[in-house]
Design a protein around this nucleic acid. Structure first.
Length: 545
RNA sequence: GCGAGCGUAGCUCAGUGGUAGAGCUCCACCUUGCCAAGGUGGCUGUCGAGGGUUCAAAUCCCUUCGCUCGCUCCA
């Protein structure tokens, strides 16, 4: 990360997360493993808080949403029905111009069926059914300028005819016509600079150059039972959603829900990402929180809008400020063929605006596919109207680890503190000015903070203070994740809590012994207030709403 | 996937062929009447891993894993 513009470097954050026990690299003692992360004592509390507030908001506080906890490994047919097997298991090539993904083994078939190929063959009067074609340079050029421009704008011959045709020059100088295999011709007209790139394969849609064939099989494979054979092959789920669709009938039959209603699930999913990067942002093992909300066909749009707004509110409720969030509305041509709408909720990470959650209106695609592949009905019968239909679905699908990362990025603040309670924003990489000291503070919303309150006796060598403080701690710990600390000067103990984002520190001093009041110090303002011990729990509770 | 850089204590880093270091953190004791004070003592490393060159490797070479950055990719 660039260290300018006061941007948080992910290295700095990762360093704090390791030092304080939020996030460790998986299998670190063996050199680590790319794309996998472990949550330490504080990190797992933070993550639990994210899950719990989501579950409360989505499931427990609504009559019409129920939960599910499906298995990670499912029948392989699930992934055929979902389109994950077949569609993306084969080597794929990507067009560098129009960005379309193509199965490598279908590219030539696609080219032969394409409009531009047919047009080209007619223009040069070649005979494509035989392996050889015959043509002249000028005829190629004429085609490029006229039909090629419209039909295959990405083709090298069309974009840059002179350079592309230079490969002909030698042959064209000696003879007017060129004999060449049809495949070679196509590859030559797709190649701009032979020396640099070698022969290219054109995109069937636009003629643009394709990337090398690549394995896009992003599902982890495994074998059920002891025998390692194709018959026993199955997959770690690449998304949690399919468990919900596959159990739609059972949930409907047992929950007595009526449309519209939702099924929610939190769980691990696995994608064998080609290139995990940006700390925990793109991991190979990650956790999703998904809601499948089933609606009557035709009401998709209103429910989609409803859930986008609900989800935006939720992100703000856990402390992500509105100005750091952004909605990205998919354009028609970006949508999957079955989807009618999709909105991503993005967060402004130090490494860019990136997706936290996608909210998609997926129509009846998933249920219909499972109906087709399983032969089991996925229809819903409305008694009141006597209607039978396959419900449409609106799917808000969020990444837990990404939300945790956003919360960590958002919380991290460095400040310079002066003598007279003066606070300056720190300039990364610089020493504070004379008379100022640096403070690192994690400004988590109290609701998601891993530890809610720390309790200190002012001095540790005064047994009466320690004993009194211990009593306060024992009481608070029954209600909130609490932290006990007697070690070091009081200021040092405050700063330790600042760095893990504890919103409140309670200090027991000599006044406490006479009147049962303590000071409660607030993390962000560092202001202290003296209140009665009996009012502590309520005071903290107020901030968790 | 390609290219470049990096990997030494929990963290930040110094150490360019000859006995593995510093600051901070952490722990113990002392001190300390509210924001990283001070004192004393202490723990911590197969120098990412494996192989090679050498009398001798943290240091040079090869391989590999991991991290960062830039392309690429992200259904």
């Amino acid at each position: 990360m660039k260290n300018n513009e006061n941007k948080l470097s992910m290295d700095t954050l990762a360093s704090l997360c390791k030092r304080r026990g939020f996030i460790f690299q998986s299998s670190e003692i063996y050199g680590g493993i790319n794309g996998f992360w472990d949550y330490g004592p504080l990190g797992c509390e933070l993550k639990r808080n994210v899950r719990e507030t989501w579950w409360k908001n989505i499931v427990q506080n609504r009559e019409n949403v129920v939960g599910l906890d499906a298995s990670i490994i499912m029948h392989p047919k699930v992934w055929e029905a979902s389109g994950h097997v077949g569609g993306f298991q084969d080597p794929m090539q990507t067009c560098q111009i129009c960005k379309k993904h193509l199965r490598a083994d279908q590219v030539w078939e696609g080219i032969k069926e394409s409009a531009w190929f047919g047009s080209l063959v007619r223009a040069i009067e070649g005979v494509p059914d035989t392996n050889e074609v015959t043509f002249t340079g000028p005829s190629l050029l004429r085609w490029a300028i006229r039909d090629g421009k419209k039909l295959a704008p990405g083709l090298a011959l069309v974009r840059n005819p002179q350079v592309t045709l230079s490969w002909l020059a030698e042959k064209a100088n000696t003879t007017d016509t060129v004999n060449i295999s049809c495949i070679d011709l196509i590859r030559h007209v797709a190649t701009e600079q032979l020396a640099q790139t070698g022969l290219q394969t054109p995109c069937p849609h636009c003629g643009g150059p394709l990337t090398e064939p690549r394995q896009f099989n992003l599902m982890f494979e495994t074998y059920v039972g002891a025998i390692k054979s194709e018959d026993h092959k199955t997959y770690l789920r690449p998304e949690t959603a399919q468990g919900i669709f596959a159990q739609f009938g059972n949930v409907l039959a047992t929950s007595r829900q009526k449309i519209p209603f939702g099924i929610a699930q939190i769980g691990k999913a696995f994608r064998n990402e080609i290139n995990p990067r940006n700390y925990t942002f793109r991991s190979r093992e990650f956790e999703q929180m998904e809601l499948e909300f089933f609606v009557k066909p035709g009401t998709d749009q209103q429910w989609h809008e409803y859930w986008v707004e609900e989800r935006m509110k939720w992100y703000q409720s856990i402390g992500l400020p509105a100005e750091s969030l952004q909605k990205y509305v998919y354009k028609k041509e970006e949508l999957a063929h079955y989807a009618s709408a999709c909105v991503d909720i993005m967060y402004n990470f130090p490494f860019g605006m990136q997706e936290l959650e996608g909210i998609a209106a997926r129509g009846d695609f998933d249920l219909s596919r499972h109906q087709q592949f399983s032969g089991k009905s996925m229809e819903y019968f409305n008694q009141e109207t006597n209607e039978k239909f396959v419900p449409h679905v609106v799917e808000p699908s969020a990444g837990v680890d990404r939300i945790v990362l956003a919360l960590l990025c958002n919380a991290y603040k460095e400040e310079w503190l002066g003598k007279d309670n003066q606070v300056l924003p720190a300039e990364p990489g610089k020493q504070p000015p004379e008379g100022f000291e640096a403070r690192t503070v994690m400004r988590f919303h109290p609701k998601i903070a891993p530890v809610k309150v720390a309790v200190f006796p002012l001095l540790k060598n005064k047994p009466e203070l320690v004993e009194k403080a211990r009593g306060v701690f024992d009481t608070l710990q029954k209600w909130y994740p609490s932290f006990w600390d007697v070690a070091g000067a009081i200021g040092r103990r405050y700063r330790r809590q600042d760095e893990i984002g504890t919103p409140f520190c309670v200090t027991i001093d000599f006044d406490t012994l006479t009147n049962n009041t303590v000071t409660i110090r607030e993390r962000d303002s560092m202001k202290q207030e003296r209140i009665e011990i009996s009012k502590l729990a309520d005071k903290i509770h107020e901030t968790l709403a």
